[in-house]
Design a protein around this nucleic acid. Structure first.
Length: 517
RNA sequence: GCCGUCGUAGCUCAGUUGGUUAGAGCGUCUGACUGUGGCUCAGAAGGCCAUAGGUUCGAAUCCUAUCGGCGGUACCA
């Protein structure tokens, strides 16, 4: 040992076969839905230059907050904005060990991939917002965040399953995002009543705040961050936090934003109207009546109306997609419609409390993300399923029904017969039956059957010299044995029922029959 | 990060106001059953009571720090 006991890093997990299977089925089913909408599967690397990933660079004050990053062991040229190599006074190319970071989502790498492809064109001025190519892709895989607090379903390494459309400003793409999320979740196996896609528009929020005198990215962000908590602390709670602050249930003091009470009241009053669920048309009506002619607000509202029209035309009612004017989404980069999916499934925790995991998908429109890398505004929209959180939820709520086929186990009695064991195994595998020969060191039959039991093997094959000479195989139906084990009375009789001798040349067909019942 | 709370066998937990040798159930292993798991019976192993200090004649129990879990809060591209 080198000063470290074997253990995994906090927030990282070993994935067992059952969870792997569940995750695989989630990704497969949702991916097929994405493909139905014309998205193609791409992958990008886990590591990226930190500069490309966003503003989260080490060595700045935002340091490593939330990201895993380090220096590239290899030195490479430093580039200027126009893509040419930076040179020092002696005209040598400036080399550096660039900062490298593990991706914290799949959207930033998408922006990099898109921007990388078009960089030269953009430098030559051949690329404009107008002719930026349309690009649709979906992608899944692990992303990494250096989270301080790890809730159930929240990890430092976790999978996301994204789809994005780059190169369109049409909010039809946003409407489609909501439809896709709904379709995907239902294909994965969620009931229509067990989730809700909720939609809002940042332009409406921003416009509203502007009308009451809150503008500028920082002020807006501060307020939005508090509004985002409305689900948790209610309208009253956010009023306090906007103003003087409040004390929470644990007695901790939460500092307020210190806004003028009349402004805080206006904000509270606005959201008060949306605390109960309303139909999309009611919300549109409601928002229209609140519209004082602010440009952003009007634009956002028009987009929402368009989204509603598309959803209606496509047959997505309020059971699937709702408008929810208090949805903010934490991410700073959203510029228009935002959406998230709330799971309504519940589970009981170890203390017997009924719990939810909350949001399982999120997305929205981010018209500025590619611009940061390319200098040209390229509109984009997309969404992501939090695969691991969803899997956790499916397991906890008892909705994870993946079937795992375990292999037939061939018990080993005699090394001399190993050739025969291999031959049986090959025959079964050729017939598509997954088969395993017991290679454990301890060969007591108890051990071997115990292993088969643990692996959940449906069948165990016993072949010793007796059977070999007689040209038979003893086939033990472990699955049937398990079913009968409750009613076991007479051991010998029970053994007779679950075990039979099968002629060697009929083995494959008998096993296939056994497995299919 | 901050506040609170908890930490006793592999797991779930008992453990009296500080008092001798720290318990149970489940699981594991062994045997009854030398080629037959689950049922049954008999037995065994397994603990520096999270770690490190301190208080005390005496600490699983009280105090402090650290680490880990949980809850809340903050942050979340």
């Amino acid at each position: 040992m080198n000063g470290m006991i074997p253990k995994k890093i906090k927030g990282f997990r070993d994935i067992d076969p059952e969870l792997n299977e569940l995750r695989r089925s989630v990704v497969k089913k949702a991916g097929e839905v994405y493909e139905l909408y014309g998205f193609r599967h791409w992958d990008t690397p886990v590591l990226e230059y930190a500069e490309n990933l966003g503003k989260y660079l080490p060595d700045k004050e935002t340091v490593a907050e939330g990201v895993y990053s380090f220096r590239n062991p290899e030195t490479e040229p430093v580039y200027k904005d126009d893509g040419s190599e930076l040179r020092d006074d002696s005209d040598f190319v400036v080399m550096d060990n660039h900062h490298i970071a593990m991706r914290y989502d799949l959207t930033a790498p998408l922006a990099r991939m898109y921007a990388e492809e078009l960089f030269m064109q953009s430098q030559k001025g051949q690329l404009t917002t107008k002719n930026a190519p349309l690009f649709k892709r979906y992608q899944y895989g692990p992303v990494y965040r250096f989270e301080a607090k790890l809730d159930p379903g929240r990890f430092r390494e976790f999978w996301q399953l994204d789809f994005d459309t780059v190169g369109t400003a049409d909010v039809s793409a946003d409407a489609e995002s909501c439809m896709i999320l709904s379709d995907a979740l239902e294909t994965i196996g969620l009931d229509r009543n067990s989730y809700l896609v909720k939609v809002n528009n940042r332009k409406i929020l921003s416009g509203f705040l502007e009308t009451i005198g809150i503008s500028g990215a920082e002020n807006e962000g501060n307020v939005l961050r508090i509004i985002d908590k409305i689900d948790k602390i209610g309208v009253e709670g956010i009023s306090y936090e906007l103003g003087r602050g409040r004390k929470d249930s644990s007695g901790a003091l939460i500092p307020g934003l210190g806004l003028d009470p009349t402004i805080a009241k206006k904000i509270g009053g606005y959201f008060e109207q949306f605390t109960e669920e309303k139909s999309r048309s009611e919300i549109i009506e409601n928002l229209s009546s609140l519209n004082s002619g602010n440009e952003k607000f009007t634009e956002g509202l028009d987009e929402l109306i368009k989204i509603d029209n598309i959803l209606q035309a496509s047959g997505y009612d309020e059971k699937r997609v709702l408008f929810s004017p208090a949805i903010v989404r934490g991410l700073g980069y959203y510029t228009g419609p935002v959406y998230e999916v709330e799971s309504l499934l519940t589970f009981t925790d170890s203390k017997g409390n009924l719990r939810k995991v909350g949001s399982i998908c999120g997305g929205g429109r981010y018209d500025g993300l590619v611009e940061r890398l390319l200098g040209i505004k390229v509109p984009a929209a997309g969404a992501s399923i939090g695969v691991d959180r969803l899997c956790e939820l499916l397991v906890l709520s008892g909705n994870a029904n993946v079937k795992m086929d375990a292999p037939v186990l061939i018990a080993v009695f005699d090394d001399e017969l190993m050739g025969e064991y291999q031959k049986m195994a090959a025959e079964l595998r050729n017939a598509g039956v997954s088969t395993e020969i017991y290679y454990g060191a301890e060969r007591g039959l108890k051990k071997q059957l115990g292993y088969a039991d643990k692996m959940n093997s449906p069948v165990c094959l016993l072949l010793g010299s007796d059977e070999f000479e007689k040209g038979i195989v003893t086939v033990r139906d472990l699955k049937l044995g398990n079913e009968l084990s409750d009613s076991i009375t007479n051991k010998d009789e029970w053994k007779q029922r679950v075990q039979k001798e099968v002629p060697r040349n009929e083995l494959v067909s008998v096993i296939k029959q056994l497995l299919h019942h």
